[in-house]
Design a protein around this nucleic acid. Structure first.
Lengths: 122, 122
DNA sequence: CGGTATCCTTTCGGATACTG
DNA sequence: CAGTATCCGAAAGGATACCG
């Protein structure tokens, strides 16, 4: 697949570490807005570098919108899903349904609500 | 996302280079069977190592079925999609539809049939 | 024909320290 | 608070040669 093809790009994208996780975290509660520090706290193990990298990628690709409140110190940043970002969630849903159908031996996914799974709300 | 979660695994999976390409190649013509050398010829640029690696992964994950005819020399191998493999194609379809909806500026995908796109038949 | 084996480069991502 | 800078090890993937 040509690297300039968005299908390829989207596939490459979702496969990167933390990306799906960040999207799902922003998806919880629909039009949720999350601060950088909230994301960091709610996504165990992610380093500041990876979080800001992924957020920049997602912003560049138009899935995430960043807003900055610089009116006072310290500066506050908020992130939320754009329309295309929300729509991207459906891809994760399809992925999950595929897994539920064909990978039933996997304990984490067998239980409709595997407490540990961030894709729980799908 | 826990690495043992199949949702994560499936995402990781589709993001790997050549994987989607191989699946799409096997999908052309529905229950198509392809020889190793056919795949190699039809997927420009793939190296023997990558092709056999990906095929092994896909087989291990149950998306691809391999059959070997060792009755004569040289040995002949054939690969085809399993049910779960065919079903996985729908994920690529959703991916493509998402791209078509939100990434219309991309010329390759804008044309409903971009001759160069292996996802053309979706 | 259908792969392996080897080597090598590039990219990814983790750890940690630091800053406006 | 919201990141950036630096360093480093691991893993992915390409090139090429070889084998049963």
């Amino acid at each position: 697949m040509d690297e300039s093809c968005t299908v390829y790009q989207a596939a490459d994208f979702i496969g990167r570490r933390w990306t799906a996780l960040i999207l799902l975290e922003l998806y919880k509660g629909e039009s949720m807005t999350r601060r950088y520090s909230e994301l960091k706290k709610r996504i165990p193990g992610i380093t500041p570098k990876m979080l800001s990298m992924r957020l920049r990628e997602l912003e560049r690709e138009g899935l995430v919108k960043k807003t900055v409140d610089a009116s006072e110190f310290p500066v506050k940043s908020s992130y939320s899903l754009t329309k295309s970002g929300k729509d991207f969630i459906k891809i994760i849903k399809v992925l999950k349904n595929w897994a539920l159908t064909w990978k039933l031996d996997n304990k984490l996914c067998k239980n409709a609500e595997c407490g540990k799974c961030p894709a729980d709300n799908l």
